[in-house]
Design a binder for these strands. Structure first.
Length: 547
RNA sequence: GCGCCCGUAGCUCAGUCGGACAGAGCGUCCGCCUUCUAAGCGGAGGGUCGUAGGUUCGAAUCCUGCCGGGCGCGCCA
């Protein structure tokens, strides 16, 4: 595809040089796969894109471009079609060559090096250490992990990081809530503060605390007491969150503590840096960041009139730390309630001298669980919500991840629990996995005595050609998914490939064919299996060998 | 009030840096197992792309207004 684009541009240049077309700065050529098979395997509306700027009829542009399109790989034929499309037809030799490449490269097929080893840090989930992970966290975990896999596949050096908000008011409330639960267990009359954490998990945590440490802590002075309870609760909950992610197949390279930023003085320093760079001012007793200079819609308080920092400051210090660790690009996946915060974070980083592009933020939208067609009600206030662990226990890791990755991350998602549990073709994840298992089954029956070096040009049936064409698209699909930060493209690709395979399988015999054909079809099946496995791997979903 | 996301088939959603008659899955209806996994396949039906204008050879896609749904907008984190 890349080369086809380049050839189109070159053809345009050649036509201009030959005086057949006026010289203008043209747009980038679009190359696409036509829906209609009669329109070729690939097609480009490039002539029509150029027509306006050139003020030459599209059809004429197309013909002149076609005349100058040299150096196409053998087996590729160009046809000019009605309004001015250039349609490319790939013959059997070309497809056979593409298939051979899949078989040669094996698990490496689909990868590339466009990232050039640049370092990317993806921060995701980053839930407060005040309770179990919820279903939105599970969505973010699936998306972040898959993005990391995709970026690694196209040549970036990727790290996954989880930011732990273990300082500030939230964990203070957590400590207070834990204390109340302890006292309640000991028979005292105590009530949760209004902004306390009501979930049952804190009762369990309190019980665990009593078993391990007894009740002596309650006799300590308040400050010391709450600090001990806070540390206990934060570390326990954080570890539980990590364990939930691990069970889900998501591994973080680092859990980054906010408190550490305070302890090392990084938080104080970042305010000093912003002051030195002249992007702050004093007003009404507070220190403000002149965020409007950098595109935010209002200036933001950094240091409150009581001397405390606002929550942005440690976050800025954290992002500065990430950059200083040598990452070229920071990607944050945030919850839908955080978008107001993006502009100020960008503004702060720009004020520190970094280009606006170093921080890329994606908002992961809400998840609504559906059971028997109705939304499962959740109440954060009452501490009643479905946890990530519960979801995974109910539908399984693969289904959960696949369902999250089927949709574009920035649209709200309805998660059909009943569908996710079905073990039939209605369930998309099973549909894809089943295709893989079927292929493995073929090889179990074929055994080892099949000839190497099958004659791939025997694969001329429409279903075979469609499969080969789909396989040849995989690398560009992976690249597009990585560049657009769109794992759902891979999910769709897998669904399409699995569908094409099921059609092929139903229409044609593999093992029952004449040996040369059987060998060629086994090769095709091997390639499909490898690409399905790789595609699923990019989603963090397993490719079972039998089902 | 301001900002962001969303509005496409009965349902859930792709497609949204303009391109060839608008796609998929589920659900509905009709077919296909003496042979490699029927956890599968084939076919049918189903859409004023929220709405009204505009730009363009061409608009689901770009611009403007309006309607509907969700979420933000603190010297809270």
């Amino acid at each position: 595809m890349e080369t086809l684009r380049e050839r189109l541009v070159a053809a345009f240049g050649a036509a201009v040089a030959a005086g057949e077309l006026p010289s203008v700065a043209g747009p980038e050529p679009v190359v696409e796969m036509p829906r209609e098979s009669g329109h070729g395997e690939l097609a480009s509306p490039y002539a029509m894109q150029l027509a306006r700027a050139l003020r030459v009829p599209p059809r004429v542009v197309a013909e002149r471009l076609a005349a100058h399109l040299g150096g196409l790989p053998p087996g590729v034929r160009v046809v000019v079609a009605n309004p001015g499309f250039l349609n490319f037809y790939l013959d059997d030799a070309w497809l056979a060559q593409a298939l051979a490449e899949v078989l040669e490269r094996g698990p490496d097929y689909g990868g590339s090096d466009v990232g050039g080893g640049r370092r990317v840090l993806i921060e995701f989930v980053s839930a407060n250490p005040t309770g179990p992970l919820n279903v939105v966290n599970a969505r973010a975990a699936a998306v972040g992990d898959s993005l990391a896999r995709l970026l690694a596949a196209v040549g970036y050096r990727v790290e996954r990081e989880f930011y732990v908000n273990d300082a500030g008011g939230q964990v203070g409330n957590l400590a207070l809530s834990l204390e109340v639960r302890l006292r309640q267990l000991l028979g005292e009359a105590a009530e949760l503060p209004p902004d306390g954490y009501p979930g049952e998990y804190l009762v369990d945590l309190a019980r665990g605390y009593l078993e391990e440490h007894g009740a002596a802590v309650l006799e300590l002075p308040e400050e010391e007491r709450l600090a001990l309870l806070r540390d206990f609760a934060v570390e326990r909950i954080r570890a539980q969150q990590e364990a939930s992610c691990e069970r889900y197949g998501v591994h973080f390279d680092r859990f980054f503590s906010e408190r550490r930023l305070h302890e090392t003085g990084a938080v104080d320093k970042v305010v000093g840096l912003l002051r030195e760079r002249g992007h702050t001012y004093q007003e009404e007793g507070a220190t403000w960041l002149a965020a409007r200079e950098f595109g935010d819609d209002k200036d933001r308080v950094l240091v409150k009139s009581d001397g405390a920092y606002t929550y942005v400051v440690p976050d800025v210090a954290y992002h500065l730390d990430k950059l200083r660790r040598g990452h070229d690009l920071l990607i944050d996946l945030l919850g839908p309630d955080h978008h107001g915060y993006v502009a100020r974070m960008r503004a702060a980083l720009e004020a520190l001298g970094y280009p606006p592009g170093v921080l890329e933020v994606h908002l992961i939208q809400q998840v609504r669980l559906l059971r028997e067609g109705r939304a499962v009600t959740m109440s954060k206030r009452a501490g009643e919500f479905v946890t990530m662990d519960q979801l995974v226990a109910e539908v399984g890791c693969d289904a959960a991840r696949f369902f999250f990755l089927q949709r574009s991350p920035e649209s709200p998602l309805d998660f059909d629990l009943d569908l996710a549990k079905l073990e039939t073709s209605e369930n998309p994840v099973f549909y894809v996995q089943y295709a893989h298992a079927r292929i493995c089954s073929l090889f179990r029956q074929a055994g080892e005595n099949w000839p190497e070096g099958a004659d791939l040009t025997l694969l001329t049936q429409p279903e075979e050609r469609e499969l080969m064409r789909q396989l040849s698209r995989f690398p560009e699909e992976v690249l597009a998914a990585a560049q657009e930060r769109a794992p759902h493209r891979v999910a769709r690709y897998c669904l399409e490939l699995a569908g094409l395979f099921h059609s092929f399988y139903n229409r044609h015999r593999v093992l029952g064919s004449a040996p040369p054909t059987a060998a060629a079809r086994l090769s095709l099946a091997r390639a499909v299996g490898a690409v399905l496995a790789r595609g699923l791997d990019l989603l963090g979903v397993t490719a079972p060998e039998r089902m």
